[in-house]
């Protein structure tokens, strides 16, 4: 149910784009209106979500420490895994965001007879990293459609990504990697029993959607060739806010654009917001220095305590008998 409904939703999106452009010829709607709307939803939604998280304060200093604290000068302090200040936190966050440090620790717990064993389990880390980095490179590559002249950095990236020089048009390595990584991530969700057990429709849907985007993109580049000049014209028009609508690009392009638009519009309201959330995670972005620097809780309020005077009033005789000094006679 969760799986089929997610897959059907993506198929429906493809059909909508195909019917909308190939049959109804609504090129302006699918080429201009929807992309603008989606981008607006994405940008505003993203900001809204970040602000919403940001509005909740961080009352306590709760980093998860994964190494030796800074204590005595002769004990080697782990500056990254247990940061004591901003520099360490920045280092920790860079490792976390760019290289998925925590996921790299992953272990597999196995029961061997009446014993437990722990084995290395780096596939999830590798699959996740492969997907996210390919995605980033592909996004940056797409800048060549939106910028004129194309910056040398983007051209360089393009060259690197296609250095294998296979086929015409030249094959991008990231196209292969992202498909493999997405299929791996989908496969483990389908076939690892625990992961399947915890998965929701909202875990399958983004995977199918991304696969749809990647597939339509690959089809368009390598098989159902579209007119790149027209594509660039449309893209540049969108960016410069002077949109023109070429009608001769072919439905596969509009399917691709519609799926991307769907992803953008869906992003802020979904688990994909982990992209923004990771920056705010208090167990990772705080320094373990709460004994040295007082952390302030903005809503700290006075509480009822059992005072020493109340305590002594109850136990004075017993204290005196035991030779414990008291305040009042």
């Amino acid at each position: 149910m969760k799986i089929w409904s997610s897959l059907l939703a993506v198929v429906a999106l493809v059909l909508i784009a195909w019917l909308g452009t190939g049959v109804a010829g609504l090129y302006t709607v699918f080429g201009v209106g929807i992309p603008y709307l989606a981008f607006l939803i994405f940008a505003l939604g993203f900001i809204y979500r970040i602000l919403k998280w940001g509005r909740s304060p961080v009352p306590f200093c709760i980093p998860t420490t994964c190494g030796q604290e800074k204590s005595l000068p002769w004990i080697k302090h782990n500056k990254i895994e247990n940061p004591s200040g901003t520099a360490g936190v920045v280092g920790r966050m860079i490792l976390e965001i760019l290289f998925f440090r925590s996921l790299f620790r992953n272990l597999k717990t196995e029961k061997r007879g009446d014993k437990l064993g722990f084995g290395s389990a780096k596939w999830l880390w590798l699959g996740g990293l492969a997907f996210h980095w390919s995605m980033l490179i592909i996004l940056l590559r797409h800048l060549r459609f939106f910028l004129d002249p194309v910056p040398s950095l983007v051209r360089g990236l393009d060259g690197l990504d296609s250095f294998l020089q296979i086929g015409l048009p030249i094959l991008y390595i990231t196209d292969i990697i992202i498909v493999a990584a997405l299929l791996y991530l989908l496969a483990r969700r389908l076939f690892v029993p625990q992961v399947r057990y915890i998965s929701l429709a909202s875990d399958y849907f983004p995977l199918f959607l991304l696969l749809g985007i990647v597939t339509s993109g690959i089809l368009m580049r390598y098989f159902l060739r579209v007119d790149v000049v027209s594509v660039k014209e449309l893209a540049l028009g969108l960016v410069t806010l002077r949109p023109t609508v070429p009608t001769d690009i072919g439905s596969i392009f509009f399917i691709h654009v519609f799926l991307v638009s769907s992803l953008f519009a869906y992003f802020p309201w979904s688990k994909l917001m982990h992209a923004g959330g990771i920056f705010l995670s208090p167990t990772r972005n705080m320094a373990n220095n709460s004994r040295r620097v007082r952390h302030i809780n903005p809503w700290n309020y006075p509480v009822d305590v059992h005072s020493y005077a109340e305590y002594e009033a109850e136990f004075k005789e017993k204290m005196k008998k035991a030779g414990v000094p008291v305040e009042t006679e």
């Binding site: 925590s102 992953n106 999830l124 992961v195 915890i198 998965s199 875990d203 688990k271 982990h274 995670s281």
Partner: peptide
């Protein structure tokens, strides 16, 4: 909000 249920 941010869990992706990766299962790690």
């Amino acid at each position: 909000d941010v869990c992706v249920r990766c299962g790690a």
